[in-house]
Design a binder for these strands. Structure first.
Lengths: 357, 357
DNA sequence: TATATTTTCGTGTACGTACCCGAATTTACT
DNA sequence: AGTAAATTCGGGTACGTACACGAAAATATA
């Protein structure tokens, strides 16, 4: 029965009435399915455009039994770095919100010290059929290879925590590394007198090669600030290639043997707690200490006035917003900004209790 | 026809089958409507409990044509204080997200300098029938009277920006005023030597009586920090009761005539830009300046190094989360925490570009 | 021209819930 | 007991969309 009454209808029914076809035909056009002549298809399309038709998501997801599968590909939260717990928490929060709208989220965790585990997970992920991907592209080359596959299979993907520009990701949620180093230096400007004798120690602690470029970008930002503002402080830098405390202690001992007048220490990542432990044990807590990330150990030292400031970049929000970006794109067709830098938050002893990681 | 097949059904159908009644009867029980005998009602209720039945929100909002009306009762964003633009932005964002689920949000703006305009709006609000309220309870007594009406009418309400404890609000999203003053003092600890001669000026600028208690709480937090940590700095305090620049200038002139050695100024609200203008015009920019809120004028002075730090408390998020709390409560039956303090964010020249207000 | 094939399209049912309307049952009242 | 009234309940349709199935129309093939 063709719908011909004049009563104002809504949605597909109204389109069907105006085009003098059945609802099913309108549906075919909406979903780009075949079986519609070009003539009627164009007619329907023009009516859709004219009405600025917005499908009712409620009815759609209710009627459509199929569920969208999103995949999450991030490092597992080891006890070595609890960092990745936060993005996962954000992801779970998003999942809780949208699972009732037919979204399923499968998690694939890899070992961030092991490239091959990453590759293995990408293969498994492609084998299971998924409709969208949220990933941390830690290993550059492997990630590029993987996203090329995704492009071929027409699977959209979102990056978090670190970006691969020019890889056509749907979007990126994460820090501007350079600027966060710059911010750290800015804090020190207030805290350390502008004299050469007030030395500043820059510490990179990292075992994984893949993380090096992160640290390098922060280091670059940090140093640039001192140049841009003609700061006179001498900057000493050390790279610690082992993350155990003994290694850190050894290196620090060496530095302090050479330099007596270090006013501040800037640790370029979340390993700042190791340095905190050192300066606490060696009664050097008068030295200013700045580091990264809202991790339990770090907060402990923050409470005890050993760490003075932590710079944080909302890891949880990275996961949450990444998933929601996928959801908004695939379900509502809304695309968001391509690059989304997280705020650069400054945490101290007096506001950490209020921080939302 | 009673549903008797053994095939596993979902939702109300399954309940109806097990209880050997019709769907309509189950529906009556679910909505606490009358017309069901106590016996069958109990039977159905026990089955609902047993199955841990969760209604399908999609189907519910689709089938139910009625739309929920939320009311927002906040100050209008005057050019005197652009502050309230931010909560409104958050509210609009939430509206955009949930309007497709049958939520309508009506806005009622009052003049924060005029109690009677507040009362007028509350009356209008109660006249229009609304299902939930998000409000800024700026005028204590009037707000209490209003929320008593709401309680009587069984309309849930959420507070933002300032709290009225013991008023049985669904929840509160806003700052911990005392702690934000404490935080401001903590920042100064790093920036000003611990000596009596390094004086610190505390400035309250406010015309509205209703805002006074805000400032007082911050002031209390600020001073407490100095006491708690045995800081020796002399603290000078002034209250400026007019918000125009001429008044501020007059008061500041007077203070600087009396004191030559002021190291830092703490302005307890967003009017910090007036003080910034003063110390810029009087070539006193070497004085540290700390204030509140991410407003355009303040950011300008932050860029120019006149203001050193701004403390911000996510006003936009207050509006967003407030609305979502109402929504989650009324649609999904999920209640959130009662008191939700916003983070205490520290904004400086090097991170303001990344701040999400 | 008759039949086979392809293209094009409509009917009908389903998703899970809300709610109108009227029927069946029970209770109250003369 | 007989009727009226109240109580309790079920049938059926609707919300807006998806999709299986089959019918009709157009085209191709013999």
């Amino acid at each position: 029965m063709k719908i011909t009454e004049e009563k104002e209808l809504t949605g597909v029914k109204e389109i069907a009435r105006r085009a003098e076809v059945s609802i099913a035909t309108v549906d075919r056009v909406l979903h780009n399915r075949q079986g519609v002549s070009i003539k009627t298809k164009n007619k329907i399309l023009s009516i859709i455009a004219e009405l600025d038709y917005q499908p009712n998501i409620l009815a759609r997801t209710l009627a459509s039994k199929k569920i969208l599968k999103f995949a999450v590909l991030i490092p597992e939260a080891s006890n070595e770095t609890a960092f990745w717990e936060a993005p996962l928490t954000g992801i779970l929060k998003a999942e809780e919100e949208i699972k009732r709208y037919g979204i399923q989220i499968d998690k694939y965790f890899f070992d961030q010290n092991d490239t091959s585990s990453f590759v293995a997970k990408t293969e498994q992920l492609l084998h299971d059929h998924v409709d969208g991907i949220l990933m941390a592209p830690m290993f550059t080359e492997e990630s590029i290879a993987f996203t090329n596959d995704c492009k071929r299979l027409n699977i959209p993907y979102v990056f978090i925590n670190s970006d691969l520009p020019d890889q056509q990701s749907l979007c990126y949620f994460g820090p501007d590394l350079y600027q966060s180093g710059y911010m750290g230096a800015h804090l020190l400007r207030y805290l350390v007198p502008n004299q050469a004798k007030n030395k500043i120690l820059l510490v990179n602690i990292s075992k994984e090669i893949n993380q090096r470029h992160h640290l390098l970008q922060k280091e670059k930002g940090f140093k640039s600030y001192f140049e841009d503002h003609n700061r006179k402080n001498e900057i000493i830098k050390i790279d610690v290639r082992q993350t155990d405390y003994a290694s850190v202690e050894r290196e620090m001992d060496q530095i302090f043997a050479q330099h007596q007048d270090i006013s501040a220490i800037f640790v370029s990542n979340s390993r700042v707690s190791s340095v905190a432990r050192y300066i606490e044990q060696h009664n050097k807590t008068e030295i200013l200490l700045i580091g990264f990330d809202f991790l339990p150990q770090n907060i402990e030292y923050l409470k005890n006035d050993v760490i003075d400031f932590l710079i944080c970049q909302k890891p949880q929000e990275q996961g949450y917003k990444g998933i929601m970006a996928l959801y908004n794109k695939m379900v509502h067709g809304q695309s968001s900004q391509q690059v989304n830098f997280m705020p650069i938050d400054i945490i101290s002893r007096e506001n950490y209790l209020f921080y939302h990681n």
